[in-house]
Structure formats: C-alpha cells, structure tokens
Amino acid sequence: MTDIALEMPWLAKAWKTVQTGLRDDRLPHALIIAGERGVGKRAWADAVAQLLLCDQPITDAEGGPVACSVCKQCALLGASSHPDVRAYSPEKSKVIKVDQVRALTGFAVASPQVARRKIAIVDRADQLNINAANALLKTLEEPLPDVTLLLLQESGRPVLPTIRSRCQVLNIPAPGLEQAQAWLEAKTAEMDEAERPSPETLKKALMLAGNAPRLGLEYATGEFIQLRDEAFEQFRQFMKGQAPVTQAARAFKALGLEGALALFEGWAADLARLVAGGAAKDTEAAEMLGYLARTNPGWRAHQLQDKVNEARQAAVYNANPELEAAQLLIEWKKLMPKRRRAS
C-alpha cells in the first residue's frame, strides 16, 4: 500500500499521530476520525489497519513506522481477505443497525485468527441508530487489548457524546485549493485522454466538493455536475416564480436524496456566510444567495439547515426524495421578498 501521507499529504498530521502512538505503545483503543465527505477518511483507516497489522513495519524518512507491504498480513490486506479486519457501514436503511454492532462485538471478543490484533472500522459512526450506538458503547466501556476501533464521522453529523467521550478524536481537514487541485490533476492524468475531464471541470468539481479531493474526483468523472447544473437552473427559475415546485423538485430527485440535501445544505451554509459578511463557497450560486442575504436575517439560514437535517432523518424511513425536495424548495421560497401590490 502506498504511504498514505505521501499519496494524500493533507492526511499527514493524523497519520503522524498514529505512527507516534504505535511507536510509543500509547495508541488508544478507539479513534474517531472526523472530516468532510470525500476527504479520504476511509483510505486513511485502511492504511492504519495495515500499519497496525503488519508483521515487519519499516521506518519512513521521518523515523515513523510504515507497513512493509510484503509480509503475510499486508498480502492478505492487499487481497481484501484479512480475517482480522472488519468494516461496518450503513445498509439499505441508511443506518448502522444493532445487529451489525452485535456482530462487531462478537468479532471483538474472539481471538485474532492470523494477526496479533484485530481492527474494526465503523464507517460511518454518525449513522448508528440509537440501539446500535448503545450496543457499541458497551464495547467501548470494556476495551480489549488486542482490538482497535476506528470510527469514521462525517463533519456536521453528530456522534453520541457518550461514544465521543470514550474515543480519541482526530480531525482531517480538507486541503487547500492548490494541494487539492494538484492531487486531482495527478489522478485524472492517469485516465485515457478521451475520458479525462477538462481543467474547467476539475475546477468546478473541487468548488462543489469544498476542496475534498476524492469527492471532487467523483464529481469530475460522473454525472453529478450536469445534474447539479440542471437542479440549480430549476431552483433559480422556481425562486423567480417561473417554474412550478413539482418541476424543480424532479430535477433535485435526479440527484438522489443525499445529493439533493448536500446541495441545499451547502447553499444554506453559504447564505449564513454571506449574511455574516463572508463569501459563498458555491461561486455560481453566490449572486442569488447574496440577494437573499441582503433581505433575510442570519437565523433564516440556520432554519434552512435544520430543515435539511429533518429531511436527512426522514431518509432513514425511506422518505420520498421528490417530496422532500419540494418541501425544502417551499422553505427557500419563503425567503424571497414579497412584491407590493400596485395601488
């Protein structure tokens, strides 16, 4: 496996923390890794799992341990078949259920099969339902010496305080534009020229991803940008009274519920920034959001963010994406100044 700190330099600080903890035998039994979607949390967790399981770690240029990539443990991890690593993530219900955590508990109390320790990755810990969270808490309260838990948390999504208090938290910030752009250009340079996104597409993808490189890569090589542009145009037309809510909602439905909610959430955050005198991250939406910022107090932006959170919670119960989008559009429309009737 490539040295994660070299491949994605913005992960270096969090990576160094694990190297130091392992070298000094002070690694905590549970880590929460928090960061924006697409910043590389899962890649970081996979690299940590390899480092902790490697039989023959070597030393990097700065004196920290790194996985050798050639021992039996590294070979099993490279083949995605290591029996002492388990990952748990939301299923069709969009949450991690208690049965999954019970399976994690069973895995934790069993003896390692081929390595000296076991690694459990919870991707994402902010999607544990209440029963699953309580079950995980019991495992955290009685840590086992041969088990390390890596809990991934998306920024802005809460984890129960009782769980958070029993873990060490590592924050992974998104890189700056220059670093993110360099990484994205290097990744897309490996693609066939005919499929390679244009520089303009890469720039826009990073803007929409908030400089999260891996999410930017997903946007640049998929359909998201086109679907987002169609949704934004329908949003503009709806806000001006030139398109019905049903038509605008269909455009957001095409993004999928999480994609639509991410757009609404980003615009609400930009609105709050503009009201406070800052700048919008979505530069294409800045003009419209700036107009709304001049005519609305800051609490309206936070109210919109609360509505997005309510819609996200409803998604757990298979809410209708088009209906949720329509309801959010109606909330946005309330921010438009009411026209005075001619006397």
Rank of each mutant, 00 (worst) to 15 (best):
N129Y: 10
I130A: 13
N131V: 11
N131T: 08
L136Y: 03
K138V: 11
K138N: 05
T139K: 08
L140G: 00
E141M: 09
E141Y: 08
E142S: 08
L144R: 12
P145A: 09
V147M: 13
V147G: 12
T148D: 12
L150K: 10
L150I: 13
L151V: 05
L151H: 00
L152E: 01
E154K: 14
R157I: 15
R157H: 12
P158T: 02
P158D: 06
V159S: 04
L160N: 04
T162R: 01
T162P: 00
T162N: 00
I163Q: 05
I163A: 02
R164Q: 06
R164M: 10
S165P: 01
R166V: 01
C167W: 07
C167H: 08
C167N: 09
V169L: 03
V169E: 04
L170D: 04
L170C: 03
P173K: 02
P173Q: 04
P173Y: 03
A174E: 10
P175K: 01
G176S: 00
G176Y: 01
L177T: 14
E178C: 03
E178V: 07
E178S: 08
Q179Y: 00
Q179W: 01
A182H: 09
W183F: 11
L184A: 01
L184K: 02
L184N: 00
L184F: 00
A186H: 07
T188C: 11
T188K: 05
T188H: 09
A189M: 00
A189S: 02
M191P: 05
D192M: 10
A194H: 13
E195V: 14
R196N: 02
R196V: 03
P197D: 00
P197G: 04
P197A: 03
P199R: 02
P199F: 06
P199C: 05
E200T: 10
T201G: 12
L202D: 00
K204C: 12
A209D: 05
N211E: 07
N211T: 09
A212T: 08
P213E: 03
R214C: 15
G216F: 06
G216R: 08
E218Y: 08
T221A: 06
G222R: 10
E223N: 12
I225W: 05
Q226A: 15
R228C: 12
D229I: 06
F232C: 11
E233M: 12
F238A: 07
K240A: 14
K240P: 14
G241H: 08
G241P: 07
Q242I: 08
A243D: 10
A243M: 14
P244N: 08
V245S: 05
Q247A: 13
A248Q: 02
A249C: 12
R250H: 15
R250Q: 15
A251C: 11
A251K: 09
F252P: 11
F252D: 07
G256T: 04
E258P: 09
E258L: 12
